[in-house]
């Protein structure tokens, strides 16, 4: 009898932090060795399952930042610390953190795309000796959708940060889409470096093209894909693009691969 790969396990919620009106971060008890950029299938029995990225990890806990959009995500918002959340994972290919080490790192994230890169950023924030310079360009739609305010504030001390809002004018934030501020990253002076781009599909597409224009080689660019998923273990077929299963070979892809993942 093979083990049941679809079996979820209950985990205790340690803390809940409201990020925005529609996004909460749940800290869940777990000793699992998740990697940066991986995701879990979170579920509530009788409600459903959904893939959610690990947005931070620590000793004995994982964090998930969830946007309320539907059945499961709405129901999760009704949970309180001490309640149980069901999980299976971690799944997917993570960011190649070891390759990033001792070089420079550029992270460009839009909206909820900040969640999957947050743990990577926190790692290098806590291990500054393992990285040279970190350039973090984060964009949100408006003031009401700013995530991880505390982290954003902390990161300023060790990273080169550019935070921008598409529309609103708020202290500490620039205005305009992330692509408008790309020019401020000194790509031409960087040598050993990697670029992470995560956000909505259109944002990733345009940002990657811009980076290429700035002379960033394709193989230095990393993106994280979001696709409809039902199983996360390469069985259900929903996430497939060509011969690639996003749940298995992704969600993190090198741009050399990602550019050929046409839908």
């Amino acid at each position: 009898m093979s083990t049941n790969i679809l079996l979820p396990r209950p985990h205790r919620i340690l803390a809940i932090n409201q990020e925005t009106e529609h996004e909460y971060t749940f800290r869940v008890e777990s000793g699992a060795a998740a990697k940066h950029g991986q995701f879990y299938q979170l579920s509530l029995p009788k409600i459903g399952e959904a893939p959610i990225s690990v947005s931070a990890m620590g000793d004995g806990w994982l964090e998930f930042t969830i946007r309320k959009v539907g059945k499961l995500t709405s129901e999760v918002f009704r949970l309180r610390p001490g309640d149980r959340l069901f999980m299976r994972g971690p799944y997917g290919k993570p960011f190649p953190i070891d390759d990033f080490k001792h070089g420079d790192l550029v992270v460009i994230a839009g909206g909820t795309g900040v969640a999957p890169v947050r743990s990577t950023l926190r790692y290098f924030y806590e291990h500054p000796e393992e990285i040279k310079e970190v350039y973090f360009l984060a964009g949100f739609r408006d003031e009401g959708s700013i995530l991880f305010r505390a982290d954003l504030e902390r990161f300023k001390a060790r990273f080169h940060t550019i935070y921008t809002l598409d529309r609103d004018r708020v202290d500490g934030f620039e205005t305009g889409l992330v692509t408008r501020h790309l020019g401020r990253i000194p790509f031409s002076t960087l040598t050993r470096y990697h670029v992470i781009i995560v956000g909505p599909p259109v944002m990733m597409h345009h940002t990657a093209l811009k980076c290429l224009e700035y002379g960033v080689p394709e193989e230095k660019i990393w993106v994280s894909f979001e696709r409809r998923m039902s199983c996360a273990v390469g069985k259900c077929g929903h996430c497939k693009i060509n011969e690639t299963y996003v749940c298995l070979e992704g969600p993190v892809f090198n741009y050399t691969k990602a550019k050929e993942l046409w839908d």
Partner: peptide, 27 residues
């Protein structure tokens, strides 16, 4: 064709019993 979709349901709101099941899906 092997695709499927997983979903949960409650048989009875009060009894709070239900199941997780999968059904065939089509691209």
């Amino acid at each position: 064709c092997s695709c499927f979709t997983t979903s949960d349901l409650i048989y009875n709101e009060n009894a709070r019993v239900g199941e997780r099941r999968r059904v065939w899906a089509s691209c």
